[in-house]
Each structure stands twice: as C-alpha cells, then as structure tokens.
Simulated scan of single mutants.
Amino acid sequence: MTLYSCPICKLPLYQLSSSLKCDNGHNFDFAKEGYINLLKLNNKKSILPGDNKDMISSRRLFLDSGHFDKVILEIIKIIEYYKPNHTKNILDLGCGEGYYTSFFQKEFNDIKFYGLDISKYAIKLAAKKHKKPVFFVASSKDIPLQEKSIDGIIKICAPMFVDEISKILKEEHIIVSVSPGNNHLIEIRNLLYKSIRNNTEKLNKIVDVDLIHTKEVKLDMSLNPKELQNLINMTPFKWKINNKLEKLLMSNNMFNCTAHFKIEVLKLKPSL
C-alpha cells in the first residue's frame, strides 16, 4: 500500500507494476518519467492548469542561478531543529519543477520527499531531472494522500489550504511556510505600479494553528538582463510589463533587486 488515496473514491491506492489501483478498480498509470497524475477532472479550470511551459522553464533557469538558495539553507536548519526523530516523509506543496524538493532530498537522505503541483508540465520536468523525490500532479485543495500519513509540509510561495493539510499531516508535526515579504522585488514593483501594497498572506483555514517560529530573509541580488527576464517570466509581472521595464530588459546593465521572504513554522493544534 502507498501513501496515496484514490482521488475519486478516497480509498487507499496500491501499486501494481507501473500503476496505482484502489479496491473500487480506479486505475492510474505512472508516466514514463516516473510521476503519477492524480488530478481530478473537476479540479481543472483549464486543460492544462497551473504555470505554463514558459513560466516553468524560466523558473528553472532562474533558480539554477542560485539567487534564492539562502532561503533553502534556512529551511534546512528549521527541518533539522524541529523534525521528530521518526520523520519518514515530507510533502513539498506547490513544488513546481522540483528545484527545492531535490535540494531537500539530497540534504536528508533518510527522509522521503514528495512533490505536488497542479501543473503537469512542471511535474513532468521535475520527475525527468530528479529521480529520487516522488512527484505527482494534484491540487493543493484536494490532496490525494491518506489521512495522517505525512510527517511534515513545506510550502514555498504557493497556495496552502490548512484545513486540507490537517487531514494528511500527523498531529504535532510542522508546516514550513515561505511567503513574499513586503519588500520582495520592490524595485520591479516600483516600476510597474503607482502605489505599492504590502504582501499579505491569508491562511485559508478553519483548523487552528500555532505560530512557533518566524524569520525574515532579505537578499540583495544583482541580476544580468537574462536573469531579470527569467525572474519576471516566472511571476505574474510577466503580464504587466510596461515601457520602463521593457527598456530595462533591453539594456545590458546589471539590475539590483531585493528578494524578501517571510518564513513561518506552524504547528497544527491537537484535536480535542
């Protein structure tokens, strides 16, 4: 039996050769790259939901440049400090093309990392490049994993629904949540918007959580035009480029930019 539950009927899924199957006969085949697609049709708002091919390709190129690696190192410290000794598996929620997931997997050989994303293209790219983490296509609103089967959650600038997480996360285990801080990419936002709003993240939840640790990470980046282009293409800024930003992208000058992240460690309050 696997950790997965059937996205249709919620029964446990068993692996038989190159597919997963439940007792009701629902069957899901592994792709040749090694990932499994467990996204229900009614969870799709388009034929190919999630980030598109161009956004994912740009994300991979930008992350490969290492500008955000300090955030990964901070998360590793948190996992080392807070994880129970018996931690067996951790879910990377909204893992994209698997850059972070593979980084964590290399650091913690005794833990099995799972990467979930709604973008089939992202998961395909992740599974093709990184063989050890386990990747699957699904929605973070409807996670096809068995109840209380996961020892930890990591969420990096991706949607998170705490009520859904509470079903699969073991009690007293942690959620590491990374979200943009108020000064994240402030230089680009100043070029795009007349007024700047603070970045705020509202947890979609009914279940109570305790905030047990918080840390802010600020990074001073110096980006060449290609890195800047990839950064913009992996964000919603891509759809809002104006003349000022277009001129900057066409220049050969280095662009100084701030990355600002807020890292929070959350723990589900025990049920009564």
Rank of each mutant, 00 (worst) to 15 (best):
K44S: 02
G98F: 08
I90F: 10
P49Q: 00
I79M: 11
K120H: 10
F103Q: 12
L91K: 06
F103E: 12
D110C: 06
N109K: 15
F108P: 01
S119R: 07
D54S: 11
S46E: 06
F62T: 07
Y121D: 03
D92K: 09
Y100F: 14
H86P: 02
N85A: 11
K44W: 01
K120F: 04
L38M: 06
K53Q: 15
L63C: 00
N85F: 11
D54E: 13
H86A: 11
E107Y: 11
K88G: 09
D51T: 00
I90H: 09
K44I: 01
H67W: 12
S46P: 14
N42W: 05
N85S: 14
D92S: 10
D92E: 10
H67L: 07
L93D: 07
N89S: 10
N42T: 08
D117P: 04
I56N: 01
E107I: 12
Q105S: 15
L39K: 05
R60G: 02
T87V: 08
R60P: 00
T87K: 07
I75Q: 12
P84E: 09
N52S: 05
G50M: 07
I47F: 05
I118V: 14
E80H: 08
D51N: 03
D117E: 09
E74R: 11
K45A: 03
T101E: 07
N109S: 14
P84W: 04
E97S: 10
H67F: 15
S65D: 09
N52C: 01
A122W: 02
L73E: 15
T101Q: 08
L63Y: 07
